[in-house]
Design a protein around this nucleic acid. Structure first.
Length: 474
DNA sequence: TGAAATGTTGGGGCG
DNA sequence: ACGCCCCAACATTTC
Protein backbone atom coordinates (compact mmCIF):
# COMPACT_ATOMS: atom_id res chain seq x y z
CA UNK A 1 0.00 0.00 0.00
CA UNK A 2 1.08 3.50 -0.65
CA UNK A 3 -0.49 5.48 2.16
CA UNK A 4 -2.03 4.30 5.40
CA UNK A 5 -3.55 6.34 8.16
CA UNK A 6 -2.64 5.15 11.63
CA UNK A 7 -5.47 6.15 13.88
CA UNK A 8 -4.24 6.58 17.47
CA UNK A 9 -6.78 5.69 20.11
CA UNK A 10 -5.85 3.89 23.34
CA UNK A 11 -2.31 3.42 22.06
CA UNK A 12 -0.73 6.84 22.40
CA UNK A 13 2.85 5.70 21.86
CA UNK A 14 5.42 5.13 19.15
CA UNK A 15 7.06 2.06 20.75
CA UNK A 16 5.63 -1.45 20.90
CA UNK A 17 2.57 -0.48 18.88
CA UNK A 18 1.24 -3.29 16.71
CA UNK A 19 -0.91 -1.38 14.23
CA UNK A 20 1.68 1.34 13.87
CA UNK A 21 4.40 -1.23 13.19
CA UNK A 22 2.23 -2.97 10.65
CA UNK A 23 1.38 0.30 8.95
CA UNK A 24 5.00 1.30 8.60
CA UNK A 25 5.93 -2.18 7.39
CA UNK A 26 3.22 -2.43 4.79
CA UNK A 27 2.80 1.14 3.60
CA UNK A 28 5.19 3.53 1.96
CA UNK A 29 3.78 6.40 3.94
CA UNK A 30 2.11 6.44 7.34
CA UNK A 31 -0.02 9.34 8.41
CA UNK A 32 -0.49 9.48 12.18
CA UNK A 33 -3.87 10.80 13.23
CA UNK A 34 -5.62 11.50 16.48
CA UNK A 35 -9.32 12.26 16.52
CA UNK A 36 -10.62 14.32 19.38
CA UNK A 37 -14.09 12.85 19.39
CA UNK A 38 -17.12 14.94 20.20
CA UNK A 39 -18.07 12.20 22.63
CA UNK A 40 -15.00 13.03 24.75
CA UNK A 41 -16.77 16.22 25.75
CA UNK A 42 -20.17 14.87 26.58
CA UNK A 43 -19.99 11.23 27.59
CA UNK A 44 -21.62 10.21 30.87
CA UNK A 45 -18.28 9.22 32.37
CA UNK A 46 -16.20 12.18 31.28
CA UNK A 47 -13.84 13.20 34.05
CA UNK A 48 -11.50 16.15 34.06
CA UNK A 49 -8.61 14.09 35.42
CA UNK A 50 -8.73 11.47 32.68
CA UNK A 51 -9.34 14.08 30.02
CA UNK A 52 -6.35 16.12 31.18
CA UNK A 53 -4.20 12.98 31.17
CA UNK A 54 -5.36 12.29 27.63
CA UNK A 55 -4.56 15.83 26.46
CA UNK A 56 -1.09 15.60 28.00
CA UNK A 57 -0.48 12.22 26.44
CA UNK A 58 -1.56 13.32 22.98
CA UNK A 59 0.68 16.36 23.24
CA UNK A 60 3.58 14.11 24.28
CA UNK A 61 2.82 11.84 21.35
CA UNK A 62 2.84 14.81 18.99
CA UNK A 63 6.31 15.74 20.22
CA UNK A 64 7.60 12.18 20.03
CA UNK A 65 6.37 11.92 16.46
CA UNK A 66 7.86 15.29 15.57
CA UNK A 67 11.25 14.01 16.74
CA UNK A 68 10.82 11.18 14.24
CA UNK A 69 10.09 13.69 11.50
CA UNK A 70 6.38 12.98 11.50
CA UNK A 71 3.48 15.31 12.01
CA UNK A 72 0.52 14.16 14.08
CA UNK A 73 -2.70 15.24 12.39
CA UNK A 74 -5.35 16.15 14.91
CA UNK A 75 -8.99 16.38 13.93
CA UNK A 76 -11.95 17.27 16.10
CA UNK A 77 -15.30 15.75 15.31
CA UNK A 78 -16.82 12.32 14.86
CA UNK A 79 -14.62 9.50 13.64
CA UNK A 80 -17.25 8.30 11.16
CA UNK A 81 -17.14 11.70 9.47
CA UNK A 82 -13.47 12.53 9.96
CA UNK A 83 -11.95 9.29 8.69
CA UNK A 84 -13.49 8.99 5.22
CA UNK A 85 -12.79 12.66 4.57
CA UNK A 86 -9.22 12.32 5.78
CA UNK A 87 -8.60 9.23 3.64
CA UNK A 88 -9.70 11.19 0.61
CA UNK A 89 -7.63 14.25 1.52
CA UNK A 90 -4.51 12.20 2.15
CA UNK A 91 -5.00 9.79 -0.72
CA UNK A 92 -4.82 6.93 1.78
CA UNK A 93 -5.90 3.42 0.92
CA UNK A 94 -6.64 2.29 4.44
CA UNK A 95 -6.94 3.13 8.10
CA UNK A 96 -5.06 1.02 10.63
CA UNK A 97 -5.92 1.03 14.31
CA UNK A 98 -5.53 -1.11 17.38
CA UNK A 99 -8.52 -3.07 18.48
CA UNK A 100 -10.71 -2.02 21.36
CA UNK A 101 -12.78 -4.27 23.54
CA UNK A 102 -15.61 -2.26 25.05
CA UNK A 103 -18.98 -3.23 23.53
CA UNK A 104 -19.78 0.32 22.41
CA UNK A 105 -16.31 0.73 20.86
CA UNK A 106 -16.64 -2.54 18.98
CA UNK A 107 -20.04 -1.56 17.62
CA UNK A 108 -18.58 1.72 16.46
CA UNK A 109 -15.65 -0.06 14.79
CA UNK A 110 -17.98 -2.43 12.99
CA UNK A 111 -19.90 0.52 11.59
CA UNK A 112 -16.66 2.12 10.51
CA UNK A 113 -15.61 -0.97 8.58
CA UNK A 114 -18.81 -0.78 6.56
CA UNK A 115 -18.58 2.94 6.12
CA UNK A 116 -14.95 3.02 5.01
CA UNK A 117 -15.22 -0.04 2.81
CA UNK A 118 -18.24 1.44 1.07
CA UNK A 119 -16.17 4.55 0.36
CA UNK A 120 -13.42 2.38 -1.07
CA UNK A 121 -11.03 2.46 1.90
CA UNK A 122 -9.73 -0.38 4.03
CA UNK A 123 -10.02 -0.51 7.81
CA UNK A 124 -7.83 -2.96 9.67
CA UNK A 125 -7.74 -3.62 13.38
CA UNK A 126 -4.89 -5.23 15.28
CA UNK A 127 -4.50 -6.93 18.62
CA UNK A 128 -2.32 -4.64 20.69
CA UNK A 129 -3.82 -3.66 24.02
CA UNK A 130 -3.75 -7.20 25.39
CA UNK A 131 -1.57 -10.27 25.10
CA UNK A 132 -4.49 -12.64 24.69
CA UNK A 133 -7.81 -11.36 23.56
CA UNK A 134 -11.37 -12.37 24.21
CA UNK A 135 -11.58 -15.57 22.22
CA UNK A 136 -8.00 -16.78 22.39
CA UNK A 137 -8.31 -18.16 25.90
CA UNK A 138 -11.30 -20.42 26.30
CA UNK A 139 -12.13 -23.44 28.45
CA UNK A 140 -11.97 -27.02 27.13
CA UNK A 141 -15.63 -26.62 26.29
CA UNK A 142 -14.84 -23.57 24.19
CA UNK A 143 -16.51 -21.18 26.59
CA UNK A 144 -15.10 -18.03 28.16
CA UNK A 145 -13.65 -18.33 31.63
CA UNK A 146 -15.58 -16.73 34.44
CA UNK A 147 -13.15 -17.68 37.22
CA UNK A 148 -9.80 -15.97 37.44
CA UNK A 149 -7.51 -18.76 38.61
CA UNK A 150 -8.07 -21.23 35.77
CA UNK A 151 -8.08 -18.32 33.34
CA UNK A 152 -4.69 -17.16 34.58
CA UNK A 153 -3.34 -20.71 34.40
CA UNK A 154 -4.34 -20.96 30.75
CA UNK A 155 -2.98 -17.48 30.11
CA UNK A 156 0.41 -18.31 31.61
CA UNK A 157 0.68 -21.59 29.72
CA UNK A 158 1.21 -19.70 26.47
CA UNK A 159 4.38 -18.15 25.10
CA UNK A 160 4.72 -14.41 25.47
CA UNK A 161 4.89 -12.25 22.37
CA UNK A 162 7.91 -9.93 22.25
CA UNK A 163 7.49 -6.14 22.13
CA UNK A 164 7.17 -4.49 18.75
CA UNK A 165 9.95 -2.26 17.54
CA UNK A 166 9.80 1.49 17.90
CA UNK A 167 8.58 3.53 14.96
CA UNK A 168 11.47 4.65 12.81
CA UNK A 169 12.23 8.20 11.87
CA UNK A 170 11.27 9.07 8.31
CA UNK A 171 13.89 10.02 5.83
CA UNK A 172 13.66 13.39 4.16
CA UNK A 173 12.92 11.74 0.84
CA UNK A 174 9.38 10.62 1.60
CA UNK A 175 7.21 13.69 1.27
CA UNK A 176 4.18 13.92 3.50
CA UNK A 177 1.12 15.64 2.17
CA UNK A 178 0.49 18.69 4.24
CA UNK A 179 -2.82 18.15 5.89
CA UNK A 180 -4.48 20.73 8.04
CA UNK A 181 -4.54 19.88 11.71
CA UNK A 182 -6.86 21.11 14.43
CA UNK A 183 -5.49 22.01 17.81
CA UNK A 184 -6.58 20.37 21.02
CA UNK A 185 -8.05 22.37 23.86
CA UNK A 186 -5.15 23.54 25.99
CA UNK A 187 -6.98 22.71 29.19
CA UNK A 188 -10.05 20.81 30.27
CA UNK A 189 -11.49 24.07 31.61
CA UNK A 190 -12.05 25.19 28.05
CA UNK A 191 -14.34 22.24 27.64
CA UNK A 192 -16.31 22.90 30.79
CA UNK A 193 -14.45 20.45 33.00
CA UNK A 194 -12.28 22.38 35.44
CA UNK A 195 -9.40 20.24 36.64
CA UNK A 196 -9.39 20.24 40.40
CA UNK A 197 -6.92 17.40 40.81
CA UNK A 198 -3.16 17.11 40.73
CA UNK A 199 -2.73 14.25 38.32
CA UNK A 200 0.39 12.29 37.37
CA UNK A 201 2.10 13.30 34.11
CA UNK A 202 0.91 11.63 30.93
CA UNK A 203 2.85 10.57 27.87
CA UNK A 204 5.08 7.74 26.76
CA UNK A 205 8.24 9.04 28.47
CA UNK A 206 6.53 9.31 31.84
CA UNK A 207 5.34 5.73 31.44
CA UNK A 208 8.81 4.46 30.54
CA UNK A 209 10.23 6.23 33.56
CA UNK A 210 7.64 4.65 35.89
CA UNK A 211 8.40 1.23 34.48
CA UNK A 212 12.14 1.71 34.89
CA UNK A 213 11.69 2.88 38.47
CA UNK A 214 9.39 0.00 39.35
CA UNK A 215 11.64 -2.65 37.85
CA UNK A 216 14.69 -1.18 39.56
CA UNK A 217 13.33 -1.98 43.01
CA UNK A 218 9.68 -2.06 44.06
CA UNK A 219 8.86 -5.12 41.92
CA UNK A 220 10.98 -7.38 44.16
CA UNK A 221 9.03 -6.44 47.27
CA UNK A 222 5.72 -6.15 45.41
CA UNK A 223 4.19 -9.27 46.96
CA UNK A 224 4.25 -7.66 50.40
CA UNK A 225 4.45 -3.92 49.89
CA UNK A 226 1.68 -3.62 47.32
CA UNK A 227 -0.88 -3.81 50.12
CA UNK A 228 0.30 -0.77 52.03
CA UNK A 229 -1.02 2.52 50.67
CA UNK A 230 1.56 4.60 52.54
CA UNK A 231 4.35 2.67 50.79
CA UNK A 232 5.24 3.56 47.22
CA UNK A 233 5.21 -0.12 46.31
CA UNK A 234 3.09 -0.22 43.15
CA UNK A 235 3.93 0.54 39.54
CA UNK A 236 1.42 3.40 39.08
CA UNK A 237 1.22 2.33 35.46
CA UNK A 238 -2.56 1.96 35.34
CA UNK A 239 -3.29 5.35 33.70
CA UNK A 240 -0.68 4.53 31.07
CA UNK A 241 -2.08 1.09 30.37
CA UNK A 242 -5.45 2.72 29.95
CA UNK A 243 -4.23 5.46 27.61
CA UNK A 244 -1.84 3.11 25.86
CA UNK A 245 1.18 5.27 26.63
CA UNK A 246 2.92 1.98 27.36
CA UNK A 247 2.53 -1.40 25.70
CA UNK A 248 1.74 -4.49 27.74
CA UNK A 249 4.43 -6.49 25.88
CA UNK A 250 7.05 -3.97 26.95
CA UNK A 251 6.06 -4.42 30.58
CA UNK A 252 6.11 -8.20 30.30
CA UNK A 253 9.55 -8.22 28.71
CA UNK A 254 10.89 -6.15 31.62
CA UNK A 255 9.15 -8.44 34.10
CA UNK A 256 10.84 -11.47 32.58
CA UNK A 257 14.20 -9.76 32.83
CA UNK A 258 13.54 -9.01 36.49
CA UNK A 259 12.60 -12.63 37.10
CA UNK A 260 15.65 -14.03 35.30
CA UNK A 261 17.91 -11.66 37.19
CA UNK A 262 16.41 -12.94 40.40
CA UNK A 263 16.93 -16.57 39.47
CA UNK A 264 20.68 -15.99 39.40
CA UNK A 265 20.70 -14.89 43.00
CA UNK A 266 20.29 -17.34 45.89
CA UNK A 267 16.89 -19.04 45.68
CA UNK A 268 14.15 -17.32 47.65
CA UNK A 269 13.24 -19.00 50.90
CA UNK A 270 10.45 -21.52 50.72
CA UNK A 271 7.01 -19.96 50.72
CA UNK A 272 8.19 -16.50 49.72
CA UNK A 273 6.37 -15.21 46.68
CA UNK A 274 8.03 -13.62 43.73
CA UNK A 275 6.91 -10.02 43.32
CA UNK A 276 7.11 -10.31 39.54
CA UNK A 277 4.62 -13.19 39.59
CA UNK A 278 2.13 -11.25 41.67
CA UNK A 279 2.49 -8.24 39.42
CA UNK A 280 1.95 -10.46 36.39
CA UNK A 281 -1.31 -11.60 37.95
CA UNK A 282 -2.49 -8.00 38.06
CA UNK A 283 -1.86 -7.67 34.34
CA UNK A 284 -3.81 -10.87 33.81
CA UNK A 285 -6.70 -9.54 35.89
CA UNK A 286 -6.85 -6.67 33.41
CA UNK A 287 -7.21 -9.04 30.47
CA UNK A 288 -9.59 -11.26 32.43
CA UNK A 289 -12.02 -8.39 32.94
CA UNK A 290 -11.67 -7.25 29.33
CA UNK A 291 -12.76 -10.65 28.09
CA UNK A 292 -15.55 -10.80 30.68
CA UNK A 293 -16.84 -7.46 29.38
CA UNK A 294 -16.71 -8.74 25.82
CA UNK A 295 -18.52 -12.00 26.45
CA UNK A 296 -20.97 -10.68 29.03
CA UNK A 297 -21.76 -7.12 27.97
CA UNK A 298 -24.77 -7.06 30.29
CA UNK A 299 -22.34 -6.36 33.17
CA UNK A 300 -22.36 -2.71 32.08
CA UNK A 301 -26.07 -2.57 32.83
CA UNK A 302 -26.37 -4.80 35.87
CA UNK A 303 -24.98 -7.63 37.93
CA UNK A 304 -23.09 -10.44 36.22
CA UNK A 305 -25.33 -12.76 38.24
CA UNK A 306 -28.80 -11.36 37.47
CA UNK A 307 -30.31 -12.50 40.76
CA UNK A 308 -28.30 -9.76 42.45
CA UNK A 309 -30.15 -7.12 40.45
CA UNK A 310 -32.94 -7.66 42.95
CA UNK A 311 -30.97 -6.49 45.98
CA UNK A 312 -32.93 -3.71 47.67
CA UNK A 313 -30.13 -1.17 47.91
CA UNK A 314 -30.44 1.96 49.98
CA UNK A 315 -30.85 5.27 48.14
CA UNK A 316 -29.57 7.56 50.87
CA UNK A 317 -28.12 10.56 49.03
CA UNK A 318 -26.57 12.04 52.15
CA UNK A 319 -24.62 8.86 52.76
CA UNK A 320 -23.47 8.83 49.15
CA UNK A 321 -22.34 12.45 49.34
CA UNK A 322 -20.43 11.74 52.54
CA UNK A 323 -18.72 8.77 50.88
CA UNK A 324 -17.80 10.82 47.80
CA UNK A 325 -16.39 13.65 49.85
CA UNK A 326 -14.53 11.54 52.38
CA UNK A 327 -16.51 12.36 55.52
CA UNK A 328 -17.98 9.03 56.59
CA UNK A 329 -16.17 9.11 59.92
CA UNK A 330 -14.09 6.04 59.05
CA UNK A 331 -10.52 7.29 58.61
CA UNK A 332 -9.22 4.77 56.08
CA UNK A 333 -12.31 5.25 53.88
CA UNK A 334 -12.20 9.03 54.07
CA UNK A 335 -8.45 9.26 53.48
CA UNK A 336 -8.82 7.08 50.39
CA UNK A 337 -11.67 9.15 48.96
CA UNK A 338 -9.92 12.44 49.64
CA UNK A 339 -6.83 11.08 47.92
CA UNK A 340 -8.95 10.10 44.92
CA UNK A 341 -10.58 13.52 44.78
CA UNK A 342 -7.25 15.29 45.02
CA UNK A 343 -5.17 13.15 42.67
CA UNK A 344 -7.43 11.02 40.48
CA UNK A 345 -5.56 8.00 41.79
CA UNK A 346 -6.34 5.41 44.44
CA UNK A 347 -4.33 2.47 45.72
CA UNK A 348 -5.91 -0.88 44.86
CA UNK A 349 -6.25 -2.02 48.48
CA UNK A 350 -8.12 1.21 49.19
CA UNK A 351 -10.40 0.69 46.21
CA UNK A 352 -11.50 -2.58 47.74
CA UNK A 353 -12.01 -0.98 51.15
CA UNK A 354 -14.08 1.98 49.91
CA UNK A 355 -16.08 -0.22 47.53
CA UNK A 356 -16.90 -2.65 50.32
CA UNK A 357 -17.86 0.28 52.51
CA UNK A 358 -20.19 1.78 49.91
CA UNK A 359 -21.92 -1.51 49.21
CA UNK A 360 -21.78 -3.38 52.52
CA UNK A 361 -21.87 -0.60 55.10
CA UNK A 362 -23.82 2.16 53.35
CA UNK A 363 -25.79 -0.48 51.40
CA UNK A 364 -25.71 1.72 48.30
CA UNK A 365 -25.79 0.31 44.77
CA UNK A 366 -22.33 -0.58 43.47
CA UNK A 367 -23.19 1.23 40.23
CA UNK A 368 -23.19 4.55 42.10
CA UNK A 369 -19.62 3.90 43.11
CA UNK A 370 -18.69 2.62 39.68
CA UNK A 371 -19.94 5.83 38.08
CA UNK A 372 -18.20 8.06 40.62
CA UNK A 373 -14.92 6.22 40.12
CA UNK A 374 -15.19 6.63 36.34
CA UNK A 375 -15.62 10.35 36.75
CA UNK A 376 -12.71 10.74 39.16
CA UNK A 377 -10.08 8.21 38.15
CA UNK A 378 -7.19 8.99 35.83
CA UNK A 379 -7.02 5.28 35.02
CA UNK A 380 -10.80 4.78 34.80
CA UNK A 381 -11.30 1.83 32.50
CA UNK A 382 -14.73 0.36 31.90
CA UNK A 383 -13.72 -3.30 32.12
CA UNK A 384 -11.44 -3.14 35.14
CA UNK A 385 -13.64 -0.67 37.00
CA UNK A 386 -16.80 -2.67 36.44
CA UNK A 387 -15.02 -5.91 37.31
CA UNK A 388 -13.59 -4.46 40.48
CA UNK A 389 -16.92 -3.06 41.63
CA UNK A 390 -18.79 -6.27 40.93
CA UNK A 391 -16.06 -8.19 42.72
CA UNK A 392 -16.42 -5.99 45.79
CA UNK A 393 -20.20 -6.03 45.74
CA UNK A 394 -20.17 -9.80 45.37
CA UNK A 395 -22.30 -9.68 42.22
CA UNK A 396 -19.67 -10.54 39.62
CA UNK A 397 -17.53 -13.25 38.11
CA UNK A 398 -15.28 -14.90 40.64
CA UNK A 399 -16.43 -12.28 43.12
CA UNK A 400 -15.86 -12.02 46.81
CA UNK A 401 -18.82 -13.89 48.34
CA UNK A 402 -21.35 -11.38 49.62
CA UNK A 403 -20.69 -12.32 53.22
CA UNK A 404 -17.02 -11.48 52.95
CA UNK A 405 -17.29 -8.00 54.41
CA UNK A 406 -14.27 -5.86 55.20
CA UNK A 407 -14.11 -4.22 58.59
CA UNK A 408 -12.81 -0.70 57.87
CA UNK A 409 -11.08 -0.53 61.27
CA UNK A 410 -9.33 -3.88 60.90
CA UNK A 411 -8.32 -3.09 57.33
CA UNK A 412 -6.90 0.23 58.46
CA UNK A 413 -4.98 -1.39 61.30
CA UNK A 414 -3.64 -4.11 59.04
CA UNK A 415 -2.57 -2.02 56.08
CA UNK A 416 -1.91 1.40 57.58
CA UNK A 417 -0.84 0.42 61.07
CA UNK A 418 0.84 3.70 61.96
CA UNK A 419 -1.85 5.77 60.29
CA UNK A 420 0.66 7.31 57.95
CA UNK A 421 -1.67 7.30 54.98
CA UNK A 422 -4.63 8.46 57.06
CA UNK A 423 -2.74 11.41 58.50
CA UNK A 424 -1.54 12.40 55.05
CA UNK A 425 -5.10 13.02 53.89
CA UNK A 426 -6.91 13.80 57.13
CA UNK A 427 -4.95 16.48 58.94
CA UNK A 428 -7.76 16.76 61.50
CA UNK A 429 -6.62 13.43 62.92
CA UNK A 430 -3.00 14.45 63.45
CA UNK A 431 -3.38 14.55 67.23
CA UNK A 432 -4.66 10.98 67.53
CA UNK A 433 -2.14 8.33 68.63
CA UNK A 434 -1.35 5.43 66.30
CA UNK A 435 -3.38 2.92 68.26
CA UNK A 436 -6.51 5.04 67.94
CA UNK A 437 -6.11 6.57 64.50
CA UNK A 438 -8.54 4.11 62.92
CA UNK A 439 -11.23 4.51 65.57
CA UNK A 440 -11.17 8.14 66.64
CA UNK A 441 -14.67 7.81 68.13
CA UNK A 442 -13.07 5.90 71.01
CA UNK A 443 -11.84 9.26 72.27
CA UNK A 444 -14.95 11.49 72.12
CA UNK A 445 -13.23 14.48 73.65
CA UNK A 446 -10.38 14.52 71.17
CA UNK A 447 -12.80 13.83 68.32
CA UNK A 448 -15.08 16.72 69.24
CA UNK A 449 -12.09 19.05 69.37
CA UNK A 450 -10.94 17.96 65.91
CA UNK A 451 -13.12 18.84 62.93
CA UNK A 452 -13.39 15.21 61.92
CA UNK A 453 -16.95 13.86 61.61
CA UNK A 454 -18.64 11.18 63.67
CA UNK A 455 -19.34 7.87 61.95
CA UNK A 456 -22.37 8.16 59.69
CA UNK A 457 -23.19 4.47 60.24
CA UNK A 458 -22.00 1.82 62.69
CA UNK A 459 -20.23 -1.05 60.98
CA UNK A 460 -21.44 -3.57 63.55
CA UNK A 461 -25.05 -2.57 62.80
CA UNK A 462 -24.71 -2.41 59.02
CA UNK A 463 -23.06 -5.80 58.59
CA UNK A 464 -26.12 -7.84 59.63
CA UNK A 465 -28.36 -5.54 57.55
CA UNK A 466 -26.21 -6.24 54.54
CA UNK A 467 -26.29 -9.98 55.10
CA UNK A 468 -30.09 -9.82 55.32
CA UNK A 469 -30.36 -7.79 52.10
CA UNK A 470 -28.33 -10.33 50.18
CA UNK A 471 -29.97 -13.32 51.74
CA UNK A 472 -33.34 -11.98 50.66
CA UNK A 473 -32.51 -12.39 46.96
CA UNK A 474 -31.06 -15.88 47.23
C1' DT B 1 -7.80 -10.21 47.69
C1' DG B 2 -12.37 -11.51 55.70
C1' DA B 3 -14.59 -11.20 59.91
C1' DA B 4 -17.30 -12.82 63.58
C1' DA B 5 -19.08 -16.55 66.08
C1' DT B 6 -18.31 -20.74 67.96
C1' DG B 7 -15.50 -24.67 69.39
C1' DT B 8 -11.27 -26.74 71.41
C1' DT B 9 -7.19 -26.96 74.02
C1' DG B 10 -4.05 -26.34 77.64
C1' DG B 11 -1.77 -23.82 81.33
C1' DG B 12 -2.31 -21.68 85.70
C1' DG B 13 -4.77 -20.13 89.87
C1' DC B 14 -7.32 -21.77 93.44
C1' DG B 15 -9.82 -24.36 96.91
C1' DA C 1 -2.88 -34.47 94.02
C1' DC C 2 -7.13 -33.30 92.10
C1' DG C 3 -11.10 -31.05 90.07
C1' DC C 4 -12.80 -26.89 88.69
C1' DC C 5 -12.88 -22.54 86.53
C1' DC C 6 -11.02 -18.98 83.74
C1' DC C 7 -9.31 -17.44 79.66
C1' DA C 8 -5.95 -16.76 76.20
C1' DA C 9 -4.60 -18.90 71.97
C1' DC C 10 -5.65 -21.28 68.31
C1' DA C 11 -8.87 -23.88 65.08
C1' DT C 12 -13.22 -24.42 62.80
C1' DT C 13 -17.62 -22.92 61.04
C1' DT C 14 -20.61 -19.66 59.65
C1' DC C 15 -22.00 -15.58 57.51
Amino acid sequence: MKTVIHWFRRDLRVSDNVALSEASRRAERVIPVFIFEDAFRTGPDVGAARLAFLLQSVEALRKNLAELGRALIIRCGKSEEVLPRLCAEAGAQAVFANKRYEPYAQRRDEQLVGLLNAAGFGFELFKDAVVWEESEILTQAGKPYTVFTPYSRAWKARPLPPPKEKLKAVSQTSPVPSLPSDTLPATTEEMGYPLTQTIPPGGERAAQELLRRFMAGPVDAYAESRNFPAVDGTSRLSPHLRAGTIGVRTILAELNLARDKKAVRPPPSAGSVNGADIFLNELIWREFYLQVLHHFPHVTRGAFRPEYDRVAWSENQEHFQAWCEGRTGYPIVDAAMRCLNATGMMHNRLRMIVAMFLTKDLLLHWQWGERYFMRQLVDGDMAANNGGWQWSAGTGTDAAPYFRIFNPVTQGEKFDAEGKFVRQWIPELAAFPDDMIHQPWENPLLLSRSHYPQRIVLHEEQRPKCLALFKAVK
